[in-house]
């Protein structure tokens, strides 16, 4: 399709304009994090730091137990990802590859749970976890992940529906049992959507703020998101360490996204179809 020249110019100016909105805040954080105290608080603002202050990162990192926060974030992220992959693939397989009583009703029920506002279950969940003695531990953040998540199950189920039924019938005739079929045949096939779910889960758990805010009390239990928010709350004027840690916090998701981009784009188009 040929495009008129004027149209092309408009398209690229719009693209440029929007890029400014999406990318310049990142650039500004990087530039701010590398300045000296005087530079960052000067007005009119200095755009570029005179000397790049790499030691800001070291100072910031050592000013709070960010190492502990990082460890907690990693624990929660890794464990929830394992939990989601395991539980969601099992459940999605059940919904996609079998016929059973109440299947459709249960599936619709599952989709409906995605509409429940978070506030409604927030209070009883807090009380439930409190009763179990889980408050101020990482358990409330980790354990629910082992029971699946509606959206991920939905994505996986959409994928599994597209695979011909002959596959498991052949394996059954060969004498494989149902769980062998699932683990040996289907798990390898599900590689792409499983990567998608792992990425989506890593992003959302790494970034989660409200869960840790409600369930964690001791600093030693904080995740990076909560630790950064708490640090900002107390030291509102220490903009340099705040900017440095912010940058540290957004690097892992950005890198993961850049690597796994393909899976996200393909995965979303799979669910739209």
């Amino acid at each position: 399709m040929k495009m008129p020249k004027g149209f092309k110019i408009i398209t690229f100016s719009l693209l440029g304009l929007f890029s400014l909105y999406f990318i310049s805040p990142f650039v500004w954080v990087v530039l701010s994090a590398l300045k000296t105290e005087t530079e960052v608080f000067s007005y009119p603002p200095k755009i570029f730091p005179e000397v790049l202050q790499w030691k800001n990162f070291v100072d910031a990192w050592n000013s709070q137990p960010f190492g502990v926060y990082l460890k907690n974030s990693v624990i929660v992220t890794v464990l929830t990802t394992i939990g989601q992959l395991l539980s969601c693939s099992l459940v999605a397989y059940g919904f996609a590859r079998y016929n059973f009583k109440y299947k459709n009703a249960l599936f619709i029920l599952m989709l409906a749970t995605m509409m429940i506002p978070w506030d409604v279950t927030m209070i009883p969940l807090y009380m439930e976890f409190n009763m179990l003695g889980w408050i101020n531990t990482l358990k409330p953040l980790v354990i629910p992940a082992f029971f699946g998540s509606a959206y991920y199950i939905f994505l996986l189920r959409q994928f599994l529906m597209s695979i011909p039924k002959d596959l498991e019938n052949a394996a059954r005739i060969d004498g494989a049992n149902e769980f062998q079929i699932f683990f040996k045949i289907f798990v390898p096939i599900m590689k792409a959507p499983l990567i998608l779910i792992a990425v989506l889960n890593i992003l959302s758990v790494w970034n989660d703020y409200l869960g840790p805010l409600i369930y964690l009390q001791d600093q030693s239990k904080y995740t990076l998101a909560l630790g950064l928010a708490a640090f900002k709350g107390v030291h509102d004027l220490q903009i340099l360490p705040i900017m440095s840690i912010t940058l540290v916090m957004i690097i892992p998701p950005v890198v993961i996204f850049l690597i796994a981009q393909k899976y996200i784009v393909d995965g979303i188009s799979g669910s739209v179809k």
């Binding site: 989660d208 957004i250 996204f257």
Partner: peptide, 13 residues
């Protein structure tokens, strides 16, 4: 990629 990038950033950040 650029337009999607902020969507992977935490609410705190």
């Amino acid at each position: 990629t650029i337009f999607y990038l902020p969507a992977v950033v935490s609410g705190v950040a």
